[in-house]
Amino acid sequence: MLTVAILALPDVYPLDLSIPAHVLGTQSGYDVRVCAEDVSEVPNADIVVVPGYENPEIKPAGEYLDALREAAGRGARIAAICTGTFALAAADLLDGRDATTHWRYLEPLRALHPLVKVVENRLFVEDGNFLTSAGGGAGIDACLHLIRSDFGVAAAVEAGKEVVASPVRDGAQPQYVDVLSPVRADLSEVRSWAMEHLGEPITVDQLAERGNLGRRTFIRHFERETGYSPMRWVTMQRVLSARRLLETSDWPVDRIAAVAGFGTGSNFRAVFRREVGTTPTAYRKAHACEFTNSKR
């Protein structure tokens, strides 16, 4: 059981507070607690979430910042939603780190905290033990990312179903797009086809042909709709498919490599380590309970 302390600063945004309380509260492996005036539980939590709040240019009171620093010093993971990023920055926890916030507050964040490496137009950004996100729906994505990291893809899928949200939106996706795509650029059918053929060789030219677009036009529209290049998106889907199989089956790694579209086991291991930060075998061992429970 991992303890989660949601640090509700004064003038907290109700939506930003309710998102982690509900999304993380759906996961049985979390003990979720909301901390407001009494912050005594924050320093000892495994995960601390700071929802957005009004007037982020005003530095939070010392007891809040001290609680965040103490939690960070103990190695807790700390997540911020929307303007919650300002509290982490005010505690000097983001100096030299990548971080993001709601697009309306990017420039104020830069001005107030010049040592923070502000990343624009991303749903969420993870740097070490710190996870910062944009507002609203991106807070859901950040919470699902925490669940996926702690309990695996299958758990994130179930949590996503509970809150009727996609469990696979990566942090690198943009918060918004500046130009609306024309109707003919709707490439959802192309993505559906790719998902059904992950185990087969897939090329950009194949995808462009299925979308009835020229290669360059297809790439441009695909990136506009998803925030990723076509092959980067395919790789991400293959990794997610492999993670799910590692969690829910006892298939050999080489078989998973073939089914997920990585070809050889050695290529699969290299890509998996690069994307997930661990080996397929270690990942399976960490999430063995999912498969064990599924057989009962």
Rank of each mutant, 00 (worst) to 15 (best):
Asp38Ile: 03
Ala8Thr: 04
Leu187Thr: 06
Gly139Leu: 03
Phe272His: 03
Ala156Val: 10
Gly137Arg: 09
Leu68Gly: 00
Val49Glu: 01
Gly136Thr: 11
Tyr64Arg: 02
Lys161Ile: 11
Leu7Ala: 01
Phe268Thr: 02
Pro10Tyr: 05
Ser133Ala: 14
Phe291His: 14
Ala288Gly: 08
Asp11Ile: 00
Phe130Ile: 01
Ser266Tyr: 11
Thr217Ala: 15
Val239Gln: 01
Ser294Gln: 14
Gly25Ile: 03
Lys59Ile: 12
Thr83Ile: 00
Asn293Leu: 14
Tyr283Arg: 07
Ile78His: 00
Ser294Glu: 09
Ala89Ser: 10
Glu37Phe: 10
Thr203Gly: 09
Ala79Glu: 00
Glu200Ile: 06
Gly136Ala: 15
Pro201Trp: 02
Pro201Tyr: 03
Ala61His: 12
Asn121Trp: 08
Gly199Phe: 01
Lys59Cys: 13
Ala286Gln: 14
Thr235Asp: 09
Met236Lys: 13
Ser249Trp: 06
Val253Pro: 00
Asn44Trp: 10
Leu68Ala: 01
Ile202Arg: 03
Pro174Ala: 09
Gly227Leu: 07
Pro174Asp: 09
Arg273Lys: 15
Ser166Pro: 08
Glu120Gln: 10
Leu198Cys: 02
Arg215Thr: 11
Ser133Val: 02
Ala5Gln: 02
Met231Trp: 10
Gln206Asp: 15
Thr132Tyr: 03
Cys289Gly: 10
Ala194Lys: 05
Phe124Pro: 01
Arg97Gly: 06
Lys295Pro: 03
Gly96Lys: 04
Gly73Ser: 06
Pro280Leu: 04
Asp92Pro: 04
Ala185Val: 07
Asn121Pro: 08
Pro51Gly: 06
Ala67Asn: 00
Asp205Asn: 13
Tyr228Glu: 13
Arg273Asp: 12
Val119His: 07
Asp141Ala: 15
Pro20Ser: 03
Val119Arg: 14
Ala79Lys: 01
Ala72Val: 02
Ile6Cys: 00
Pro43Phe: 04
Arg238Asp: 06
Asp150Glu: 12
Pro252Ile: 02
Pro280Tyr: 05
Leu180Asn: 11
Glu275Ala: 10
Thr85Trp: 01
Pro167His: 06
Val42Gln: 07
Asp254Pro: 04
Val239His: 01
Glu63Asn: 13
Val116Arg: 05
Arg224Glu: 15
Gly136Tyr: 07
Ala8Leu: 06
Ile256Arg: 04
Leu2Gln: 13
Arg296Asn: 09
Glu158Gln: 14
Thr217Asp: 15
Thr264Asn: 09
Arg210Lys: 15
Lys59Phe: 07
His197Lys: 06
Gly152Lys: 05
Leu112Thr: 06
Trp233Ile: 04
Ala159Thr: 12
Ala36Glu: 12
Ala87Gly: 06
Glu196Pro: 01
Val42Glu: 06
Val34Phe: 00
Pro230Lys: 08
His22Asn: 11
Thr85Glu: 00
Arg244Asp: 07
Asp127Tyr: 08
Lys117Asp: 10
Val164Gly: 01
Asn267Trp: 11
Arg110Thr: 10
Ala80Asn: 02
Met195Asp: 12
Val190Pro: 01
Asn267Ala: 14
Glu41Gly: 10
Pro280Arg: 04
Pro60Trp: 01
Gly265Ile: 09
Glu209Ile: 11
Ser229Tyr: 12
Lys295Leu: 15
Ala61Phe: 07
Pro174Phe: 09
Phe268Ile: 03
Arg255Met: 12
Gly261Ile: 07
Asp254His: 12
Asp16Met: 05
Ala286Trp: 05
Gly160His: 08
Arg216Leu: 14
Ser266Ile: 13
Ser18Met: 13
